[in-house]
């Protein structure tokens, strides 16, 4: 039986892992390789490295830490941030990443998703969606979320964009619920359930994890394929082995 995945997200800035709250105020939380290996040893199922400095710097070449991570760890990892073209994706994948994730560049140029899927296969192509509920009750996508000063409305309803991304070849969707992100108040179950119903490919919950209960809740109520978190893992607020044992007690299939 396919297991539910626990995914640790590491925001990377200038070769270090950092963490911001609601995308603001980054603090240094450690060395990339050290954290990646620690998570691997603790039993995390997958890692996402979000290069938050790649986009502003307009970088085109895969940073050398991608190759170093690929050599060192033996679980799958995805690289997000700054991938704007098939050529840039090819470099990151050649360096050893298993998947690449695109967000703002896909909103600006949706054909990028088709091109990436055609070249590398859908299973390599993750589309990240940053979404928040507007005053009229509709979930809508935000773009350029890496920097609070440039963040903007992407002009798309979240569920419409999700379905378009899948139709264009996305093999996995990471839905970051911005209203919950950084709060540690729990995943946005309502939004994730709506996204689940609309999403035929693997769906990963992101934003809001604060306790073990939040993970059991999200798997029991929304049937997402994986749950992503950052600060609760970085700060050792939740031990991964304990979390997996807790999920197993609730009958949720996990890799032990």
């Amino acid at each position: 039986m396919l297991k539910k995945r626990l995914i640790a997200c590491l925001d990377v800035a200038d070769g270090r892992v950092v963490k911001g709250v609601r995308f603001r105020g980054h603090e240094d939380v450690g060395d990339i390789l050290e954290l990646a290996q620690r998570y691997g040893a603790q039993g995390i199922d997958e890692l996402v490295f979000y290069d938050i400095t790649a986009s502003p710097q307009g970088r085109g070449v895969a940073p050398d830490w991608v190759a170093r991570v690929a050599r060192r760890i033996d679980i799958p990892f995805c690289v997000a941030g700054g991938i704007r073209s098939v050529a840039q994706a090819a470099e990151v994948l050649a360096a050893g990443a298993d998947k690449i994730s695109v967000n703002t560049p896909a909103l600006e140029n949706p054909d990028l998703i088709d091109a990436l899927a055609a070249r590398f296969g859908s299973q390599c192509v993750v589309v990240g969606i940053d979404s928040i509920r507007d005053a009229d009750g509709v979930w809508r996508v935000r773009s350029h979320t890496g920097d609070p000063d440039t963040m903007r409305q992407a002009g798309r309803a979240t569920l419409d964009w999700l379905q378009e991304a899948v139709a264009r070849g996305a093999g996995e969707i990471v839905l970051n619920c911005m209203g919950a992100d950084g709060t540690r108040d729990g995943y946005d179950l309502e939004q994730l359930a709506a996204a689940r119903a609309a999403c035929p490919v693997p769906l990963i919950a992101s934003g809001g994890a604060g306790s073990m209960r939040h993970f059991t809740e999200v798997f029991e109520n929304t049937d997402v394929d994986g749950a992503l978190a950052a600060s609760v893992f970085h700060k050792n607020l939740i031990a991964i082995a304990e979390l997996k044992a807790e999920l197993a007690r609730h009958g949720i299939p996990v890799r032990l």
Partner: peptide, 11 residues
Amino acid sequence: GIRVPHMGWNS
């Protein structure tokens, strides 16, 4: 409940 691609850990 069966998504394709089959992505993740399975026994």
